[in-house]
Nucleic acid binder design. Sequence first.
DNA 1: GTACTCACG
DNA 2: GACGTACGTGAGTACG
Length: 941
Amino acid sequence: MAFGKGHHLSLVDGSAFIFRAYHALPPLTRKSDGLPVGAVSGFVNMIWKMIEDNRGPDAPTHAAVVFDKGSHTFRNEMYDLYKANREAMPEDLRPQIPLTREATRAFNLACLEQEGFEADDIIATLACKARDAGGRVTIVSSDKDLMQLVGDGVEMYDAMKNARIDREGVLEKFGVYPERVVDVQALAGDSVDNVPGAPGIGIKTAALLINEYGDLETLLERAEEIKQPKRRQVLIDHADQIRLSKKLVSLDCEMDLGYDLDTLEVKEPVADDLLAFLGQMEFRTITRRVAEKLGVEVPAVAETQPAASGGLPDDSADASLPGAPDLPFDAKNYTCVTTAAELQAWIDKAHATGWISVDTETTSLDEMKAELVGISLAVEAGHAAYVPLAHREEGGVGLFGSDELAPNQMPLPECLARLKPLLEDPAVLKINHNAKYDVKVLARYGIRMAPIDDTMLMSYALHAGLHNHGMDEVSERYLGHNPIAIKTLIGSGKAQRTFDAVKIDDAVTYASEDADVTLRLWQTFRPQLHVARVATVYETLERPLVAVLTDMEMAGVKVDKSVLSRMSNAFAQKMAQLEDEIYEAAGQKFNVGSPSQVGDILFEVKGLPGGKKGKTGKYSTPADVLEDLATEHALPGLILDYRQVQKLKSTYTDALQDHVNAETGRVHTSYSIAGANTGRLASTDPNLQNIPIRTEEGRRIREAFVATPGHTLVSLDYSQIELRILAHTADIPALKEAFREGQDIHAATASEMFSVPLDEMTPDIRRQAKAINFGVIYGISGWGLARNLRIPRDEAQAFIDRYFERFPGIRTYMDDTIAFAREHMHVRTLFGRRINTPEINAKGPTAGFARRAAINAPIQGTAADIIRRAMIRMPDAIDGLPAKMLLQVHDELLFEVEEGAADDLIAIAKRVMEGAAHPAVRLDVPLIVDAGRGANWALAH
DNA sequence: GTACTCACG
DNA sequence: GACGTACGTGAGTACG
């Protein structure tokens, strides 16, 4: 029967519950692994009490627990500063948030949240629907923002005070009845949510005014009539701000929810599910109570001994973790799926558990070209299946096998048709290792796989700095199992075959194992994310990036081959010319491309000074050495010119042409999310993060990166983001002030250091200060600065001493960071990203490297986190604009946009980037983004 | 496969 | 007191 008269809907404000539980209870941790669970415990007890108290004739027939999701809502679109003064969530509360969702589901209660909306909006929408249908509603919350909903069968219930709030209760609180509550709130504002309201007017005055004039609009229209001059002026001056405030406090009753009230019908908890969850949390008392009430035997909550395996260096001295079940790997449990019925059985299993690990086998590492050969699946550790789809017949012509399909394979379209609903089902989690690869391959077959979890990214969030995160390495380290190497199936080097030439039997063993390993890694890493306090990093900075980068990479950037080709020819000519000059100057022919031959010529034949040999016994000939020599001799300069042209030609004008995709006419790079230790992305095949810009000649390469007709490229980049982060993190008043004032930061540094007034600043002094500023970010050393500035070492050291003297906070930051790293074996970014520092306590030169890396990582990593946050928010922000985000270059984002929409795009993207730290972190310095646009990348910059 | 060099932030 | 270093990447070439 559809929801209506006689029905009673209970809506629980889950987020408020959590915060109350957190603050009401002492910190409590799970015994086995130290996971903070105090708020979860309080939450569970509150829910249980609510269920128990609500048995009887008045019991709700429908119920849901509603949560906030994310912190960025449509209200932030109206008003940047909405809730901007909120404190960041306490670190030990964060990991508990997802657990409260799990708790809700364990109680068999509907768990509701929606991106971009607050819990209050969902509650409002459901309450209005229920009321309109003739039912009763109880909102379990004491939040005053919800009071506007009271009346007509809607009541609030304050679970703490055990008090119901009806229309009269609202009148008591606000001085008006519910329908005028938003008017009062609009005037009074709200310091907690940072709603501005009218300055100097509180609830009392607001209610007085509203009661006198009837409603807010009338009041504002007739503001001139107000007798008190101050009050009158405030209302006239701030009318817009008051109207905005009203919008901010008004709840959205007409959200598009995608489900109706009937789905919220109350169901009894399933004893097994609930007790499993409570057991996992190691809650003994509530477990006993629940078990008794549900009439089942009280399960023993394990006196869990900290597990011996899975050791992870953590803040606590001897943190150790529960791992996945220690089940042997056995290929006997891997099966080959060849019929629809067999495949369906796996799909059913996935629906039953809510998750499935998936791995695709293809013909190429390039996702834009890879053709699907088969798919492996696993739902339970130790068991997996492989669905061969496009293996070719064995023993065809030569090395390449046959063109015929091998027998006993499902037709690819049929398999995909059956898998598509599962892979796109929002209720079933797809677990992958390096999900971006599989998402991209499947996207080309019309499947948008979501939601996903990625064990590679989990490993990265946990173990960045310790090792790489490829499946083989991670499996070996954390499962103690060496998976079959792909090389054994397809060979390597010239004789390498593609996966479709692999025998199906071998593919079953190999591919099933990968799905099995992935599932086991997921089981291993999932609980560790909380213990290492990187669950939020994983959820907010890693996982969401997969879809964003998928779209960017598939979009690609248009590259004009003919531009590159012309430049290539010009470079070839120039190289030939330089070669002649070099031979002439050297007095003999040699391979200019060979550093060892260059060394011999310069330091032996010509007898130039300063030749240093590397570990291979050859002379080293890096650019800075040659530059120094070039002041006295012609040859080194010519070699440098040659090298520059050769680099531009081979790496850029030539190689880049080969990367233009034949079908799209565009270049599709691939970003590795888990490549760089600090949180930066890395771009490969081709690397589009190192396209030349510093020299005029190299910069012209960027002219080949173009917009399609009718479009323009837009580049936005953060100005001095790392120095700003340093100023904030190390808390340097002078630097923060300079950034707030919009000063030239290097000039300001120079002025402070050398006591030179800004208007007397010379380029040379500024240059030296700039070098020091960068040096600080890199973990400065006298030697390094001396080398960079080409000054004596003692002079460089004197600069550094002076810098520390003028900005003592920098020294403190460096010392504190190193001390933290030595104690915890990791450092963190402002957003909690963890970068492990395994060599921080090493001896010898390694120690120096490790110290400098530890100083740099929080700065570089925080900048990386900020642009990640911007990228993740960008698709929603520019939704509706004819624009695409194409590339990321560490502090720059490149877009392609229809010409007419470029201004809108710049305005929006700039706002997203400049506000990207909020609300998680409130920086003491502004983030500034510069924008440029043009028909090609050189012009856009 | 490793070393060297050089492109970027 | 000597040592040997700026942080983070990827790619192309030479060479064993």
